[in-house]
Simulated scan of single mutants.
Amino acid sequence: MNHPEEMYSYHTWATQTILGRIQELPDSVLHQEVNSSFRSIAHALSHMYAVDQMWYLVLTGVSMPEALQMCMPRNEEIYDSVEDYSRRYMELSKQYAAWFQEHTDLEQTILLDNPFAGIRNTSLAEIIFHLINHGTYHRGNISTMLRQLGHASVMNDYSLFWYTKPAID
């Protein structure tokens, strides 16, 4: 497994870890309004999911402007339950796993037409690392939102992820 793929595995694990914590709490926590970066934890999760989908499309050859147009409306698709989010994330992670199987040269570059920043050659690995960084940032938002709602979050740091894998001799 290469480093970007390992980091994507971390991203999947960390997202499922925080979803698992939310699932332990009363159902109302998902949609409870909070004064934060997002109106609710569900809104934050929908944003993360939409962006993960958008980057997947870019990695599979869709232009970034087109991928944004397709996925950004999904920011407002608020699902009823944590299970809905978990299922969607797992389905998308399977698509990413298949993509990784087909792409061994992650230093390959594509011409990325980012409507917010301009055009540049960007490696596939850079896109993966950005996706992971974006998820980490918003899992931090969710942890803060949980605390604002009176609940503890759960550790989902990369250093904890190291210990979830079999030890290397």
Rank of each mutant, 00 (worst) to 15 (best):
S63D: 13
G135L: 04
H43D: 07
R139I: 05
H134S: 08
H138A: 03
A117K: 14
A44I: 05
P115W: 01
D80N: 14
E91P: 01
A125I: 08
E83Q: 12
L160K: 06
I142G: 00
M64V: 00
T17S: 13
Q32P: 03
L131V: 14
R74F: 09
V51Q: 01
I168D: 13
Q95Y: 10
A67S: 05
L19V: 02
I22W: 03
L106P: 04
L124R: 07
S40Y: 06
M7P: 01
R74N: 15
E102Y: 03
L57E: 10
Y10N: 04
D113N: 05
A98H: 13
M72K: 15
M72F: 11
R39D: 15
H130Y: 08
T109S: 10
I41E: 00
M145P: 04
E24Q: 15
H3I: 14
S28F: 07
H134Q: 10
D52A: 12
S123Q: 11
D169F: 15
L106N: 03
P26G: 07
L112T: 00
M145T: 06
H134D: 10
I127V: 12
S46C: 06
K165V: 07
E5N: 14
T122W: 06
N133E: 14
T60Y: 11
R120P: 07
Y137H: 13
D157G: 02
A50C: 06
L30N: 01
A67L: 00
S159M: 15
L59K: 02
S46Y: 01
Y137C: 04
S93D: 15
R147P: 00
E83F: 10
R39L: 11
N114L: 01
L25K: 07
Y96K: 03
Y85K: 06
T17V: 12
I127E: 10
Q69M: 08
G61M: 06
K94V: 09
R88G: 07
E126C: 06
N121C: 08
Y79K: 15
I119P: 01
Q148A: 09
H151I: 03
T144W: 06
N35A: 14
E6L: 15
P65Q: 06
N133G: 14
A152W: 05
V82A: 05
H151N: 08
W99H: 05
A117E: 12
T12M: 04
L45Q: 02
R39K: 14
I18V: 13
E66M: 01
E5T: 12
R147S: 11
Y85H: 08
Y8D: 09
D80H: 14
F161S: 06
Y8W: 11
S123Y: 09
M54A: 09
R39C: 10
S123C: 09
V62N: 00
R147F: 08
T144Y: 12
V58R: 04
F129C: 10
M70C: 05
G61C: 06
Y158R: 08
Q16S: 13
T15Y: 00
I18E: 01
F129L: 14
L106W: 07
I18L: 15
E83G: 12
M54V: 05
S123M: 08
E24H: 09
R120T: 10
R87M: 09
Q32D: 07
M7E: 11
